Simulated assay, not measured.
Amino acid sequence: MEVIYGLIPSMIIIGIVLVVILFWAIKSGQFDDLEGDAHRILMDEDLTPMKKKTDKQPTEQSETDNKKNSET
């Protein structure tokens, strides 16, 4: 029975600390984006995005220009 004199105050203190942590999390914006993680888990991150081709294919005209330049 004597242990209850220590348990009740400690549980009240722990409860107050948890409520303070809850209010801190709400104030700091921890619960602002509730759907973001649900949508993010559906995304495939292991696939690399498509890269745009920046390399120009040599055209017939540029090939003939290169031949003329190499001959001179």
Rank of each mutant, 00 (worst) to 15 (best):
Q30S: 05
K56H: 15
E2F: 12
D55V: 08
M50D: 13
S28L: 01
G15Q: 12
I21Q: 01
E2V: 10
F31I: 11
V20W: 04
K53A: 14
M43D: 05
E71Q: 05
V3A: 04
K27H: 06
E71H: 05
M11Q: 13
D37C: 09
T48S: 13
E71A: 06
L18E: 13
G29W: 00
E35P: 00
I16F: 13
P9T: 01
S28N: 03
V17H: 03
K68T: 14
A25K: 07
A38T: 02
L22T: 10
K51F: 15
V19M: 10
E63F: 08
E2P: 02
G6V: 07
Q30M: 05
W24T: 08
S28A: 04
L7F: 03
S70I: 05
K27F: 03
K56C: 14
M50W: 11
I13T: 08
D44P: 02
V19R: 05
K51W: 15
V3N: 04
K52M: 12
Q61W: 15
S10V: 08
D32H: 03
V3S: 03
K53F: 12
T48G: 12
L18S: 11
K68Y: 10
E35G: 01
I12M: 11
Q61F: 15
T64L: 15
F23G: 08
I8C: 00
V3Q: 05
L34Y: 02
D55P: 00
N66D: 15
L22Q: 04
D33W: 00
A25N: 10
I16E: 11
Q61N: 14
F31L: 10
L18H: 12
M50N: 13
L22E: 06
E2L: 11
Q57G: 10
T54S: 05
P49I: 10
V3F: 02
T64V: 15
D37Y: 04
N66W: 07
D44Y: 08
K52R: 14
K56P: 11
N69Y: 06
F23Q: 06
D44R: 09
S70K: 02
T64A: 15
V3P: 00
L18D: 11
T48I: 13
V19F: 09
L22R: 02
D55M: 03
A25L: 11
P49R: 07
G36I: 02
E63V: 08
K27C: 05
G15V: 08
I4L: 06
H39A: 08
V3R: 01
I8F: 00
D37H: 07
K67D: 12
M11A: 15
K27S: 07
S62M: 08
G36Q: 04
G6P: 02
D55A: 07
T72D: 03
I16R: 05
M50R: 13
S62R: 06
M50F: 15
Q30T: 06
P9Y: 01
D65Q: 04
P49M: 09
I14W: 09
I26A: 09
S28M: 00
P9V: 01
S70W: 02
I13P: 00
E35N: 01
A38R: 02
D65L: 01
D46Q: 11
T72W: 03
N66T: 15
L18M: 14
A38K: 03
G6W: 05
L18W: 14
E60Q: 14
